[in-house]
């Protein structure tokens, strides 16, 4: 148990450390070769599908791109200047952060509570678990389409149910909250499953001891569960922040191009998509994404530093 956490936080349990090829036994060499053979497909995939595009994107950010990738002209830092001085970019970054602020804490808090509830012995437990996990299995585009119609001002179920006439996803004031709610809804199940894994790592003894001492369930939750599950929490926080900052499909599917709230909801990746695929300005789009990359890296560094202070390791 606990493999997930240990892999995510690699400094723990470095049992073997660094080994020299010449000092290995025959068996160890064979093992190492097989290990390499097994990870090769993944490495190749990462190199061609992730690293090559990253390099290419950074390269393109220095160019004014021509049609169909031809006739690119080098413009130095012009794209960077344009992005920094563009209100649209900073606006979209602000929108993205707003979205993350809703999605990450809410989805984690709700998922933790659900995980604790569904970790007890109860009837239909796996049924409930499945239900909460289902949104994760559905295609994000399909989820977005269903919610788009739930939110629809003229025919939407929400307005019919409450007899209101609210433009849920078109009012610049609260459209971002409506979007965030869908984000939370669709990710809860996934976080919950990770938490369930983390909860298995907490020894039962602690709870039994606490019960004997007369601690209430609530006390147990805050004083045993929350601290002891914190490696999992930290892992989820980190991956969810990264994912939330890259939000695109929800917005692309739910917010129409002529939606009045577009300017208040479009994320960095959405604007990037617009520039690259609609306005055919790939250099500028690439530059935006480089900024997003830097931003995400900064956040990750900060989180890694916090890791030592906040997370409780057994």
């Amino acid at each position: 148990m606990g493999t997930v956490m240990q892999m995510a936080v690699p400094k723990i349990n470095e049992r073997r450390g660094h080994m020299k090829w010449s000092k290995m036994t025959k068996g160890e060499k064979t093992e190492a070769k097989w290990g390499l053979a097994f990870v090769t497909p993944t490495i190749i995939g990462l190199l061609t599908l992730n690293f090559y595009p990253i390099v290419k994107t950074i390269y393109m950010s220095f160019f004014k791109t021509g049609d169909f990738g031809r006739g690119n002209t080098f413009v130095g830092l012009q794209n960077y200047k344009n992005v920094i001085t563009s209100g649209e970019f900073w606006g979209s970054l602000f929108n993205t952060v707003k979205y993350a602020i809703i999605e990450v804490p809410l989805s984690i808090a709700i998922a933790l509570v659900l995980a604790v509830l569904l970790n007890r012995k109860m009837r239909f437990r796996s049924g409930y678990r499945t239900i909460f996990f289902l949104p994760m299995v559905a295609a994000p585009a399909a989820v977005a389409m269903v919610w788009k119609w739930l939110y629809n001002q003229q025919y939407g179920l929400l307005n019919q149910l409450f007899h209101t006439d609210v433009s849920w996803i078109s009012d610049p004031k609260h459209a971002w909250i409506a979007l965030g709610a869908v984000g939370v809804w669709s990710i809860i199940g996934y976080n919950m499953v990770l938490f369930l894994g983390g909860l298995q790592d907490i020894p039962r003894d602690y709870y039994e001891a606490a019960q004997i001492d007369g601690a209430s369930e609530l006390h147990q939750f805050f004083n045993i569960t929350v601290p002891l599950v914190s490696p999992t929490t930290f892992f989820i926080v980190q991956t969810r922040i990264i994912a939330a900052l890259q939000v695109f499909d929800l917005i692309y599917m739910m917010i129409d191009k002529t939606n009045a709230a577009l300017k208040n909801t479009q994320s960095v990746v959405y604007v990037f998509y617009q520039y690259v695929f609609t306005y055919d300005n790939k250099g500028y789009g690439a530059t935006m994404i480089v900024f997003l990359l830097i931003f995400i890296m900064l956040i990750t560094v900060v989180l890694q530093k916090l890791d030592k202070k906040i997370v409780f390791y057994n």
Partner: peptide, 23 residues
């Protein structure tokens, strides 16, 4: 839970944007 790990790895690797433009 290697499967779970792979899933999370995919997510963490996340969406790296590639704008393919060949010669």
């Amino acid at each position: 839970k290697v499967v779970a790990l792979i899933l999370t790895a995919i997510m963490a690797a996340g969406m790296v944007t590639g704008c393919g433009s060949n010669s």
